[in-house]
């Protein structure tokens, strides 16, 4: 089994697992984690592409690396935004349910305005 094939299969497995996770789980946090799994699979696929580009005689195609780095930044930003939303939602729900969550303490510090 060649390297690219192995990587490709691994990427496919990650993407499949991730998509299943996104669809099957109801909790937003799990969905976001599953999204990151799919993302990892796709980045791996970029790696495979770079490796195959090396067949042209180069040691390795640099462009996919740049793409993957950018992609990781984007995925990170997306995850951060999702986490902020999830956290804020949890705080609001806890406040509504009357059980102040740890760290939220609405009585002590008024809830910050969200953007």
């Amino acid at each position: 089994m060649s390297g690219p094939l192995l990587y490709g299969l691994a990427a496919a497995a990650l993407i499949g697992l991730g998509l299943h996770g996104v669809l099957a789980h109801a909790a937003p946090l799990r969905r976001v984690l599953a999204f990151n799994l799919v993302g990892a699979g796709v980045f791996l696929l970029f790696g495979v592409g770079a490796r195959r580009g090396a067949a042209a005689g180069l040691p390795g195609d640099p462009v996919p690396q740049a793409l993957v780095i950018t992609g990781i930044v984007v995925a990170f930003a997306a995850t951060a935004l999702a986490m902020a939303l999830i956290r804020r939602l949890a705080i609001l729900r806890a406040a509504a349910a009357g059980t102040p969550e740890e760290g939220a303490a609405p009585a002590a510090a008024p809830p910050r305005e969200t953007r």
Binding site: V42, L45, G49
Partner: peptide, 9 residues
Amino acid sequence: LLGVAVLYA
């Protein structure tokens, strides 16, 4: 992005 990766490859 998956489609982009395939096209690039």
